Amino acid sequence: MISPEQVVEMLKPTATAGPIPTVIPTPPQYQDSSTAGHRTLWVVFALMLLSSGFFSLLSWNVPTSKRLFHVITTLITIIASLSYFAMATGQASSFVCSAAKDHHKHVPDIPYTECRQVYWARYVDWALTTPLLILDLCFLAGVDGAHTLMAVIADVIMVLSGMFAAYGDNKTAQHWGWYAIGCVSYLFVVWHVAVHGTTMVRAKGVKVTRLFASLALFTLAIWTTYPVVWGIAEGAHKMSVDTEIMAYAVLDLLAKPVFGIWLLISHRASAETNVDLGGWWSHGFGSEGRIRIGDED
């Protein structure tokens, strides 16, 4: 006959080597902006808007024929202010999700989804404003239309490649392939604007040559930093969205308002920087031979 004590001993669980591991699915992880990022976007929007107003005031008493740089530079900051307003109000971003894994020592790797916030308005901004910046530099240097057009097309390809890369899976060749295409396109921009522009600007004299060299070097140094930030932030996801916003904000302020102030003040002080578009800019096509009374220039 079995005693009650024996029954209790038989019902006790046997000892195991350790606790049974429990695998809990990892929910999707989101990388998005916080209060610091939103405040940065609003501050840059305000600075871009103020810059647009300041550039407009600088052109107030300038004849239309000499207002080319003023118009282009003002458009750059107006477009940038609209872009930052869209980002600050939360209307211009989306999440890009890709597969990732949590690596563990004693249990299988746990797959999960990683989603990062991408501001698509930033690429719309760059696709419109960077060609205008190229026009500023090409007009200043006197670059011919063929090289100017090639520089603009290469620049647009560069920006669109960055956008395609941002929306691609960062674990595939799609992501870094578009990034490589963008970098190659940037080299074409450097060739047409900086290298060819340096040759063309010499015909305008020493003063304009020095101004172009300074502005071109300043701009290309900033533009070279953009793909570095992109590679760390949107490429490798090693930078937070807030830090990414702040990095791009500094670069945008340098590349647009600071560049614009430098160009317009230098242009105001040097008549050699004027651009002759053959009368089309101020009077339109078919106006040759007309007698114009009251022209200031």
Rank of each mutant, 00 (worst) to 15 (best):
P13W: 12
T14G: 12
T16M: 03
A17I: 10
I20P: 00
I20Y: 05
T22E: 08
T22Y: 02
I24C: 03
P25N: 14
P25R: 09
P25C: 02
T26R: 12
P27T: 07
Q29M: 06
Y30K: 00
Y30M: 01
D32W: 00
S33G: 01
S34A: 14
S34N: 05
S34K: 08
T40R: 02
T40G: 07
A46V: 13
A46G: 14
A46P: 00
A46N: 05
M48H: 00
S52C: 14
F54T: 13
S56Q: 06
L57H: 15
P63W: 05
S65Q: 14
S65L: 12
R67H: 11
L68S: 07
L68F: 12
L68P: 02
F69T: 00
F69S: 03
H70P: 05
H70T: 06
I72S: 01
T73D: 10
T74P: 12
L75F: 06
L75Y: 03
A80H: 01
S81F: 10
S81H: 03
L82Q: 04
A88Y: 01
S93G: 06
S93D: 13
V96W: 00
S98E: 05
A99T: 13
K105N: 06
H106V: 05
D109E: 14
D109S: 15
Y112N: 11
A121C: 12
V124I: 15
D125N: 15
D125H: 15
W126M: 06
W126A: 15
P131T: 13
L132H: 08
L132C: 09
I134C: 07
I134E: 02
I134K: 03
F139V: 10
L140K: 02
